[in-house]
Design a protein around this nucleic acid. Sequence first.
DNA 1: CGGTATCCCACAGGATACTG
DNA 2: CAGTATCCTGTGGGATACCG
Lengths: 118, 118
Amino acid sequence: MNDEIVLGTQECVRSLSYVGDALYVIGGKWKLRVIIALREGNTRFNEIQRAVEGISARVLSNELKELELNGFVRRVVHTQSPVVVEYQVTTYADTLKDVLHALSDWGQIHRDKIRKGW
Amino acid sequence: MNDEIVLGTQECVRSLSYVGDALYVIGGKWKLRVIIALREGNTRFNEIQRAVEGISARVLSNELKELELNGFVRRVVHTQSPVVVEYQVTTYADTLKDVLHALSDWGQIHRDKIRKGW
DNA sequence: CGGTATCCCACAGGATACTG
DNA sequence: CAGTATCCTGTGGGATACCG
């Protein structure tokens, strides 16, 4: 088995377009980070903002709306006082598990490479 | 085995930063697409440009330079006439294999979801 | 707490033209 | 073919202030 050549040309062409689709929804600087923070167990707005270092309230607000539109997040308002807003990851966000793992693993590989000075 | 809860809090914190690192180098609209095109077997500048739909020469040129800086690509000039410039993926780019697969698989999942109207 | 409103700007990246 | 040069625009996103 040669696992260097993992994709034939046809598969690559399709891959190119699938990856394009993926990047379209989960690309950008913040989307995946916010999802990770949510999966980490953060549900409240300010909690998430603290978890995702560097994100502003405005941007977080926008990201959460988009994530909701794309079915990754559910916004739940508990109307009993005190009124509490919760952001819950949906099961659909779980489908990103492999992507998240792969990226995290690779980030680790890359960081090591940098640290060792190549 | 509960594979819904895949990461503990500590792991997630680290994951967040690793994914951050990863996105820093391979984030953006074009990087992964260019790498896929290269892995697909395209080596010449115009070939790559044709494979990566929508990318302009200016942007492709920049992306290739950055990818070279990050060790994903090797620029080889064959000085025998006719002079030919080739872009070769390095073995380091192969470490992205899992990321690419995960993204491609997920893109497919997502496209299906959209197609079915959720 | 959970946001919104405003203002602002750097920069990714598009369009087009041109070159050795 | 393999780019570079120029010019220009959109928008992602930072800073700050404010609100119920």
